[in-house]
Design a protein around this nucleic acid. Structure first.
Lengths: 342, 342
DNA sequence: ATTAATTACTAAATCGATTTAGCTAAAATA
DNA sequence: TATTTTAGCTAAATCGATTTAGTAATTAAT
């Protein structure tokens, strides 16, 4: 029971495959195929369960109706939710998506871009890891469009959709300051990513505007693939001895850090928010059921996902337009819960 | 700057594309291409940044090196982690994966299977929703192999990898019983899925073996796409009035239920484990930082993912073997934390 | 010296669609 | 009546690979 091809239908009806193709593409009228034959073809297609071979179509037309997605890690709920939005928007436009997790590793992302290229994807949505500038630059030279998400490279012109990280961190820090916290720490990863850099800058600016000095010892930068040990160590360093805490609040720059961090804080016997207040980027489900539910900076994941796909499809469908880059910086939502006290 | 094809290399060197194809497939020796020419071809390929067109290869060879994955929801961390394992194992075997979230909706999964079919995937890994038997049966008739995960249909012969849900639920319930809980409830979804059914059956068997009666009022079955309201209502029904609790423990059959459930329990002012003990399937990150960290049934996601891919690739690579179905029922891990008291 | 074998390569078919160019018969127009 | 138009369809090229079946030139075997 092998698959039915255009040719099979053509032979079955004793007509040319050209005709069958016309009809099945809904262009029967345009090519003056008689209604009678049109009907026969469509009936036969249904009856023989014809499924067009998209691979063959892709080869002929140069369009695969597939987009490639590269994110850090699909198992991370932040990217999981984002991926879901992208998948959904893509599907509703007739596109499939190939998912790739780069682990923030530029070797991997290079490899993945190459694979997607070979698969002739019509476009890419990429959350580019550190040190992948050359890959993105190479993509720019080609004619397949791409949209960057979550971060971008200021020195490379491109389409991107990000969030106002500076402002978000400023707001979050300010919230802590207004509640009387004075020794606010920041735990973050890889400062070389613009998004992370902006978060720490926003945090620092808020301190300065409040008339406080920025204490470099209160900023802890962990490697991306941190272990819980790393966080525990960072927190112990921040906290010092229990009776004379060096920090009275922590701004976590990602939910992965925050989740692990809160685990460590509990393990150390510290209470949130009494001993230490906590704010985190990204509205992880876990934050709702924490010992004290965590105040967070929530990103508009649905908007990011939809916009990324729509911009990409625009570019795909009008490849000859002068490449005017679409760049969006969306606002975040600050959700106050109990982790900062009141 | 358009892409380089085999032909481009051939013309550039003044040789046939047959030769170029042989060389680049590493079959130069086999076809007695002189070392000198081999080298020239490989150098040219590198220099011209040749990327084989996998679409064209796919059309000719009938193999796309792509597998289709259908799960309930990639944004759900359980499936996110599973998807990640599958992606990883596939990638290390040179396969790409197209992700599809079915939302447990058979209409969607039907549509997705059809799309994957059109994309000529070499195989499927599917977590089939309720009422999708006909789709799976249709797949069986075709020659593209597939592996079911998380659940399967007993009445359809197929490859599958699941977990011993009955045993896991039995263990979990027994754990509660041994800690003195007598009024143990079960909150679950869609009993028509074998995995969910087995969980409730294991729960009931444990009660019976312990000499207790099964109280049907203590089993709450929610629709898959439940709202928090549904859970709140279920929990209120289970709990009754605070001073005379109808239930003193809950076994949640999924982490989505558990997470929402715990949120509701907190909102109702009940304390875990004092007022009510909790055990849940699936080791969500959130469970580690709960008010009282949650005792869980953890599934071997890496093993499931790897096995699914490996079985699938086996079937893909030896399509002529008599179809002997591979069926695995893996053991879960029971992780005791604080949510059941002691 | 003739035939057979080996070496080093190439032409052309093929996969399953799309699409351009063109063909035939009937109808319309001059 | 001769010519053009139109309706209704088809042949063949094409996309970029793989693969079968050869070919021509050289070397080896008889």
């Amino acid at each position: 029971m092998k698959k039915t091809s255009l040719n099979d239908i053509a032979q079955h009806l004793g007509v040319s495959k050209t005709l069958v193709s016309f009809v099945l593409n809904g262009r029967g009228k345009e090519f003056r195929i008689s209604d009678e034959i049109c009907k026969k073809v469509m009936d036969a297609a249904k009856e023989m369960n014809y499924q067009p071979n998209r691979i063959a179509q892709g080869l002929r037309t140069g369009k695969t109706n597939t987009i490639g997605l590269i994110i850090a890690d699909i198992a991370n709920p932040f990217f999981g939710k984002l991926g879901r939005e992208i998948e959904q928007e893509a599907a509703s436009n007739g596109y499939s998506v190939i998912f790739c997790s780069s682990d923030e590793n530029p070797e991997k992302s290079k490899q993945q871009i190459s694979m997607l290229q070979q698969n002739q994807v019509d476009g890419y949505i990429i959350s580019p890891p550190m040190n992948s500038e050359s890959q993105i630059r190479a993509l720019s030279k080609g004619k397949t469009p791409f949209v960057l998400i979550d971060r971008y490279f200021p020195e490379i012109e491109s389409n991107y959709i990000v969030v106002d990280n500076f402002d978000a961190a400023y707001q979050a820090t300010n919230h802590l300051l207004k509640l009387g916290r004075k020794k606010i720490a920041n735990i973050t990863v890889n400062l070389d990513l613009v998004n992370m850099k902006a978060r720490t800058e926003g945090y620092q600016k808020a301190l300065i505007d409040f008339g406080l000095e920025v204490d470099k010892n209160l900023v802890k930068v962990l490697p991306f693939s941190h272990e819980n040990n790393d966080i525990t160590r960072a927190i112990i360093e921040l906290v010092g001895c229990k009776d004379d805490l060096k920090a009275d609040a922590i701004l976590f720059s990602t939910s992965k850090l925050g989740l692990n961090g809160i685990e460590c804080i509990s393990a150390l016997g510290l209470k949130i928010p009494d001993d230490i207040a906590v704010v985190s980027f990204d509205n992880a489900d876990a934050y709702k059921i924490c010992v004290s539910p965590v105040t967070v900076v929530a990103q508009p994941l649905q908007e990011i996902g939809k916009k990324a796909v729509n911009i990409l499809l625009d570019k795909i469908n009008s490849p000859d337009d002068i490449p005017k880059f679409q760049q969006y910086t969306l606002k975040t939502e600050f959700i106050v819960r109990k982790s900062c006290g009141s």
